[in-house]
Design a protein around this nucleic acid. Structure first.
Lengths: 160, 160
DNA sequence: GTACAATTGTTGTATATACAAATGTAAAAG
DNA sequence: CTTTTACATTTGTATATACAACAATTGTAC
């Protein structure tokens, strides 16, 4: 509640001044604001399950492997964050027993990461909630508008 | 260099799978990816000046006052982050002598924050660089597309 | 086959984010 | 005028982000 209210307050203040700025500056600010809103709402959903957004993402990445292990590099490549953090992030998932880590037999520099059955169970528990949240967060755009948005954001990020 | 390459690698991997997801999920991922790209590039510019993005934002907010002091709450309301951090963030700006903090005479609970002349000088030094970066980051969208993007993002964030 | 380079992962430090609790001051209630 | 409530800021703790340095293992060159 508090967060949403605070956020809306920020937004109103920003929208007054944003319109005077260049379209580029506006775009940057709008992306930052939207990101903050998405992050906040997703975190609201994940928090009761004691997962951060990045931890949730890593679990989904590992689930996507369907039993095949991934090493740190693999996981890292599918994330939008930094190597240095991934070790510690996964440490926390291992503590919660959602992930297992083993030494890779062929190459002892590597590690093998696998999601556990508890991890899978937790993901199933959350999936629907996250889906609903994502739908709700984007609900004041029509499907056509969302496609348009995705087109623009993809174009923006791909070559820039 | 390294960051950009890594980022592009991530993006390519994501774009393969993203298309299979719902438009809502795609939008969320695209906003996250774009945010990361923007943040990385802005940080590249600010880093040589020993400023974080949020520190830079606070300086710009204070400059916008043209001599009138702001208290913490005011600054916070114009930011996209959390109260708890703002104290510490400003501590660092004070250490760098870009900002002065005084007790508010009418209400000793409040503080008065002012940008220093060094702070103003630093901002002038960076302004052009940041403008160029923002323009360059958004350069593969036309002005019309950027306006469209701003419309969609504003609509997305305003009521959701 | 030893020296050097590359790969893979871990650790350290600074900053930012998120929340809760604590501190100090002002205002309101009684 | 004292107690309670609200306000403004600070501090503490956990996680995430960014970068650099380090350690261990593997690969390559001579």
């Amino acid at each position: 509640m508090y967060i949403q209210q605070l956020y809306m307050k920020d937004l109103n203040i920003r929208l007054k001044t944003v319109s005077e700025l260049s379209v580029s500056k506006q775009a940057v600010i709008n992306v930052f604001l939207t990101h903050t809103m998405f992050k906040t709402k997703l975190l609201d959903v994940l928090k009761p399950h004691d997962l951060s957004i990045e931890q949730f993402n890593v679990l989904r990445i590992l689930r996507g492997q369907k039993g095949k292990p991934l090493n740190l590099q693999d996981v890292q490549d599918r994330m939008v964050s930094k190597m240095s953090n991934t070790t510690r992030l996964i440490d926390k998932l291992i503590l919660k027993e959602f992930v297992n880590r083993d030494e890779c037999p062929e190459n002892r520099r590597k590690i093998e990461l696998l999601i556990s059955s508890e991890g899978l169970k937790k993901l199933e528990e959350i999936d629907t909630l996250v889906d609903q949240t994502e739908t709700q967060m984007t609900s004041n755009l029509t499907k056509t508008e969302l496609k348009q948005l995705n087109f623009l954001l993809t174009k923006l990020a791909t070559t820039a």
